[in-house]
Nucleic acid binder design. Sequence first.
DNA 1: GTCATGACGGATC
DNA 2: GGATCCGCCATGA
Length: 115
Amino acid sequence: MHHQLFKDRVCQLVASIPSGKVMTYGQIAALCGSPRSARIVGGIAHFGDDALPWHRVVNKRGGLASGYPGGRRAHALHVRAEGIKVDNKGIIDLAMYIWWPEDGQPEQRTTHDKE
DNA sequence: GTCATGACGGATC
DNA sequence: GGATCCGCCATGA
């Protein structure tokens, strides 16, 4: 495949995140074929389609986006509106809200846990 | 074609 | 445990 569709894949993936769930930039990038392109996802977010639920995209620490329109506070309000708990530092519990598409849900990792 | 950038990630100090 | 630096790689000028 070609990275030309990278942006398009990211957009579709973000659009498929259900309400009340979140994905990380690195996770999205990996699913789009480039695990090291997390920043690219961020770039797409800024200049991409505002209609997409970018507020459901957080960084690997579960932290809110730095350049979100309105600031991290606005981001926090938006995710909270979907039932996601955010602590005082603006950190989301990824273990509880992380979501994977049906296609590549590595929930088996929790049982085996290798790495 | 080259250069700079970015809503990140991971390693290092 | 927090702050900082560097690398990453697609994108736009």
